[in-house]
Design a protein around this nucleic acid. Sequence first.
DNA 1: CAATTAATTAGATATACATCTAATTAGATG
DNA 2: CATCTAATTAGATGTATATCTAATTAATTG
Lengths: 196, 196
Amino acid sequence: MQLDKLVHFHKALGDATRIRIIILLKNGPLHGLAIADRLGLRPPTITHHISKLRDTGMVYARREKNTIYFHLDERKLSFMASAIMRLGEVSEMTEKEFSLTEKEKQTIVNNFVAKDGKLKQIPSQLKKKLVILAYFVRNFEIGKVYDEKEVNEYIKSFHEDYATIRREWIMQQFMYRENNRYELNPVEMWPVTFNE
Amino acid sequence: MQLDKLVHFHKALGDATRIRIIILLKNGPLHGLAIADRLGLRPPTITHHISKLRDTGMVYARREKNTIYFHLDERKLSFMASAIMRLGEVSEMTEKEFSLTEKEKQTIVNNFVAKDGKLKQIPSQLKKKLVILAYFVRNFEIGKVYDEKEVNEYIKSFHEDYATIRREWIMQQFMYRENNRYELNPVEMWPVTFNE
DNA sequence: CAATTAATTAGATATACATCTAATTAGATG
DNA sequence: CATCTAATTAGATGTATATCTAATTAATTG
């Protein structure tokens, strides 16, 4: 399910009147006037809410004579309600954010790092920035503690604006700082990993 | 869970930015500036959204130095997301709507039905109205088909405004009408049942 | 086809809320 | 205590939306 659909589903349930309609429909189909009467609201208000519920697919309509009965599709409701828990799964929208192939990452590096190994500029696009940060941070040793001067010196070897890079490493959780001493965070915390 | 809490939970998820925050936090805790940077938004905007998420309990905060890390409580998220499916269960909010003891129903009947068995007036409060409608509708036989005149005659035996009562029985699904012939709906469809 | 009933549309109103900038608070550190 | 950084608050702005009344459409039936 794509993000937009998920948002609309929860928007649909984010209203007391619509939840009450769901409750009514749990006990079986009902038509508009009956719903309006039970909730103490006017028919146009029910039309408004029902159409939002129908848009998500969790409610559908069946005509009988000139009365329209609204039914709750409990399976759909259940499926969509649980979607938020499945967010991390493959083929979910998460992947759009941060999954890059090694090839793509290499391309980004090639675009921003000169032949002499220096960083031409810090990418402004988040995804690219993270790749670059990951690329250069790998030269620290896991578990080793560095003082600020050491970190600065290393950064200067490939880019002049050491303050920004240092700050980004902390902010993006590649590194951890305590009492001005720096060390790598565990790789699991990195927003992007970089395997050569 | 009470209705209000459920509504607020879904309201909280009914926004693309907040869903994106959830996605980020699924990969581990993050602090405000990092979230702002990843989403391309300003810190106050993040404060705004995070506080809505915290209100529901699905996100909590832990301070480390002067950075505040926000954590996702997946168990709470999962519990609340599934609440909509449990709506019908006992001790849920449904019961507030329509569960009356036989005694309470009898009291309502006593208040609205005179000693001679006539309906004094149609209750305006929904709950009471349904009890009265159920009370009088029981005299029809299950499965038997009535024509409109028969229905009217029966209603007149206890109340003058037969049109209203007849219409309410249809609207509230105590009865079903087809080609001006009337019959009782199955008791499962009644919004209120009445056992003597 | 005229009358009835159910549902929807149109348009108005009032409230909620997502986002921003600017200013402020809170903690940590030199 | 002065400075830095992170987070929050305050206040403004524009958009979204819940509800209503009045008017209209759709289907059924005498």
